[in-house]
């Protein structure tokens, strides 16, 4: 018994999971992750999607630099200087005047906010909210799924009850209810209100997203825990925590990655949707908010609406396609 149990089990269950990777020529095992990445590398759609996503991530990270490079400022409120008082649209740029480098996407009606700056910072908000909420809900989903799946009896039943409870609660209603509470709690301090709004939104999105993953993981754990390598680990007295995170978790990478990549775009959409409804973020730029403001003026100033709509569309489409590709790559049944 000199072999460390972990390696033994890994070898065991890899062979068990993915027999097709073990051939006469290549005896060395490859993890599901490696295989998936190998497959993704050859998937043109996945590469393209990743490039689009990378673009948006860079835009989000370097938002201030991009604004500086274009010489635009976020929410400078020069309203009366830049707005034609008769049309209430900009004195320069679309819709009434030609393209100008001063304001490549034009300025917002009324406030004169530069729309490129709004777009760039809106991208930042979208990605930040969506990724933080996705990470949080993934972590929560994994923890609850693992614990529920591995524990027998009352703990499983309690956790499953909570999963069902949260699943049954309507998301929009929850968001609608929470917004006024946030507002009244932080009413007096606008700067704190902005922070509170931001984290409350992430909280709402997280609370209503983790359940499917928890269920998925619980189901997987159900079947895995009866497998030999887990049984073996138990017999030799490996602590439960170690079994959960070192034995079970590595086998759950596929569903987790898939959940992650598919809930990101869903949350980008949800953020924009909530902002559109006026219960999302109002203290910082957001695509949903821009869409909300632009809709009534679509006839006169279509670009105002198109910019954030295309932003959301491109980002969500790329995330979805990449998510699909990742799922395919992890699925042992797909052959390419």
């Amino acid at each position: 018994m000199s072999l460390p149990p972990l390696e033994a089990e890994e070898a065991l269950h890899h062979a068990d999971e993915l027999p097709e990777t073990v051939s006469e020529d290549a005896i060395h095992g490859r993890s599901p992750m490696q295989i998936a990445f190998e497959r993704l590398r050859h998937d043109k759609v996945a590469i393209l999607s990743a490039a689009v996503i990378l673009f948006f991530v860079l835009v989000a990270i370097f938002a201030p630099l991009i604004c500086k490079a274009f010489g635009v400022e976020l929410r400078a409120y020069p309203g009366s200087e830049i707005i034609d008082i008769n049309t209430t649209f900009g004195k320069v740029g679309p819709p009434d005047h030609g393209f100008t480098w001063d304001h490549p996407l034009g300025v917002e009606r009324g406030t004169g906010n530069d729309l490129l700056a709004e777009w760039v910072y809106g991208c930042r908000t979208s990605l930040m909210v969506a990724s933080i909420a996705t990470i949080l809900s993934t972590v929560i989903g994994i923890l609850i799924g693992l614990v529920a799946g591995f524990s027998h009896g009352w703990l499983d039943r309690v956790l499953t009850f909570f999963v069902d409870l949260f699943l049954s609660f309507p998301f929009i209603l929850g968001a609608l209810t929470l917004a006024p509470i946030i507002y009244s709690h932080w009413a007096g301090d606008a700067s704190k209100l902005g922070v509170a709004q931001f984290w409350a939104l992430i909280g709402v999105l997280t609370i209503f997203t983790w359940m499917p993953l928890a269920r998925l993981i619980r189901g997987e754990v159900f079947s895995l825990r009866e497998r030999e390598f887990i049984q073996a680990a138990r017999v030799i007295g490996v602590p439960t925590r170690r079994i959960l995170f070192k034995e079970l978790l590595p086998n759950l990478i596929a569903p987790i990655v898939i959940f992650f990549s598919l809930s990101l775009p869903a949350l980008v959409t949800a953020e924009a949707g909530l902002a559109f409804l006026g219960i999302g973020l109002t203290e910082r730029p957001s695509w949903g908010q821009t869409i909300n403001k632009a809709v009534p003026y679509f006839d006169q100033f279509p670009l105002w609406l198109w910019a954030p709509v295309l932003g959301v569309m491109a980002l969500v489409l790329a995330l979805n396609l990449l998510g699909d590709a990742i799922r395919d790559a992890f699925d042992p049944k797909t052959r390419r």
Binding site: A179, Y183, A190, T282
Partner: peptide, 16 residues
């Protein structure tokens, strides 16, 4: 009215 983006814009202008 924190739910109305135009009202938030107005607020920001007053504050500034």
């Amino acid at each position: 009215d924190a739910s109305d983006p135009t009202a938030v814009d107005g607020k920001n202008i007053i504050v500034k």
